[in-house]
Amino acid sequence: MFEYFPENYPWSLGVVATLNSGGLIDEVDRACRPIREAATRGEDAGTPDFLRAWTALTDQLVGQAEEAEKEGHRRTAGQLYARATNYLAQAERLQSASAEGRLDSYRRVLELQQKAFDLKDPGLGRVEIPYEGTTLPAYFSAAGENAPVMIMWNGLDSTKEHMYASGHWAELAARGISCLMVDCPGSGEALRVQGLTARVDTEAWASACVDYLETRDDVDRTRIGLVGWSLGGYYAPRAAAFEKRLALVVAWGANHDWGAVQRRRLEREGERPVPHYWEHVLWVWGHEHLDEFISFADRIHLDGVVGEITVPFLICHGERDRQIPLDYAHRSYEQAVHSPDRKLRVFTAAEGASEHIGLDHLGHVSTFIADWVSDVFASTR
């Protein structure tokens, strides 16, 4: 993996994720050069510096976008707003949960994202999914009438804006598949703005998403699938095991036993995805005390669960994933004995995409998943 900050894995992961989601290397380099020294102070200490540097880049692009918009260059403005959103969303992701101004930064992300939609991707828009007396915020990409659809879920620290920036929705659209990008409880806007925290029984979110999709006239109700990346590699298989209206499921990173990963992280085994890690985890799951959370997290696993999956099941994992052991991918595959079409795809260092969820070569994983999904949906038409 390209590591701009060799001594700082979470920061480097953020950089490579940005570059593989539409960021431009010159812009990213100009934002990162002033904070090289800050990166050496540890993953936590310099995150305010990271936010300031990347916010300055965001401000520059927004200024350019506003000028382009005044001159009637709508697509150029939309592209600038989209990159500005990408940069600010990534910088916000690395901040402490209690950092002053974090919510303001995220609200700005939402505003910039909407401007990008309006000017660059007007066919993609915001929707609200009814969920237990409130709603789950999401973006919907419509691929046509009576189209199959993929529900896309986050992991521990990403947002629906990262899903948009990844371009996976566009790969699906090119294959005639719509995409519902959802901020689940514990992620993105659902967590930051609404205070909705994660839960073990993710089938509750899946049912809400399917219920919503079944109200749309442009969706083929018999071909609704689910993909989750990172911690979504637990969320999605768990949901598919119990929400039987789903037609297929993809684990984009095999998070088979996330609870065990937390115990290893207490011992500093493996890498952590974000700075201020334990504060972030407690925020996501709505816990106050680490010892209580660690005991609770023992429930977050797929043993005895993936055996209940009865639809096609794809597992993608990088052989050099420094966060989640490759063994978990094999465990999910071996236990999914009732899936009629289970497939394990391990991405190697020789081809790329061997890091966590393939962030080092994100498009390689994205297109593989899109092709597999397209083939499965075609076989069930």
Score class of each variant (00 low, 15 high):
Gly259Ser: 12
Ala39Trp: 08
Asp59Cys: 05
Leu172Phe: 14
Pro148Phe: 07
Tyr87Arg: 14
Val200Arg: 15
Gly155Thr: 10
Gly42Gln: 12
Leu88Asp: 09
Ala204Asp: 10
Gly307Arg: 00
His361Ala: 15
Tyr277Thr: 02
Phe140His: 10
His364Gly: 11
Pro340Asp: 05
Arg322Val: 03
Val337Thr: 13
Asp59Gln: 09
Gly125Phe: 14
Ala353His: 00
Glu128Arg: 10
Ser374Met: 03
Ala147Arg: 01
Val250Gly: 02
Ser166Ile: 04
Arg75Leu: 13
Ala84Arg: 05
Leu13Pro: 00
Ser354Gly: 03
Ile324Cys: 10
Leu191Met: 12
Val250Trp: 08
Ala147Leu: 05
Ala17Thr: 09
Leu24Gln: 02
Gly186Ile: 04
Arg33Leu: 15
Ile35Ala: 09
Ala353Thr: 02
Glu319His: 09
Tyr131Phe: 13
Pro325Thr: 09
Lys115Leu: 11
Pro275Cys: 07
Ala65Asp: 09
Val16Arg: 00
Gly318Asp: 09
Asp327Gly: 14
Tyr212Ile: 01
Leu226Val: 13
Gly253Pro: 00
Leu172Arg: 05
Leu246Asp: 03
Phe50Asn: 07
Trp11Arg: 06
Ser178Met: 05
Ala353Gln: 03
Tyr234Ser: 01
Leu13Arg: 15
Pro122Gln: 06
Pro312His: 02
Leu326Ile: 10
Lys343Ala: 10
Gln323Asn: 12
Arg238Tyr: 15
Asp341Cys: 04
Gln194Arg: 11
Gly304Lys: 02
Leu196Lys: 00
His73Gly: 05
Gln323Thr: 13
Glu171Leu: 15
Leu246Ile: 05
Pro185Ser: 07
Ser379Arg: 14
Ser366Gln: 09
Val182Cys: 11
Pro325Asp: 11
Gly352Gln: 02
Gly286Val: 02
Ile294Pro: 01
Trp372Val: 00
Arg216Asp: 11
Glu145Ile: 04
Ala17Gly: 12
Gln114Thr: 12
Val62Lys: 01
Glu128Ala: 13
Gly232Pro: 02
Met152Ile: 06
Gly233Cys: 08
Val261Lys: 06
Glu132Val: 10
Ala240Met: 04
Gly176His: 13
Cys316Pro: 01
Gln90His: 03
Ser366Asp: 13
Ser230Met: 07
Ile309Gly: 02
Gly167Cys: 01
Thr40Glu: 08
Asp257Lys: 03
Ala239Gln: 01
Gly304Ile: 06
Ile177Ser: 01
Thr348Lys: 14
Arg36Phe: 15
Cys179Ile: 06
Arg320His: 11
Tyr212Arg: 11
Thr18Met: 13
Trp283Phe: 10
Ser98Leu: 14
Thr380Asp: 00
Glu355Ala: 13
Thr197Glu: 11
Ile177Pro: 06
Phe5Leu: 11
Glu71Gly: 14
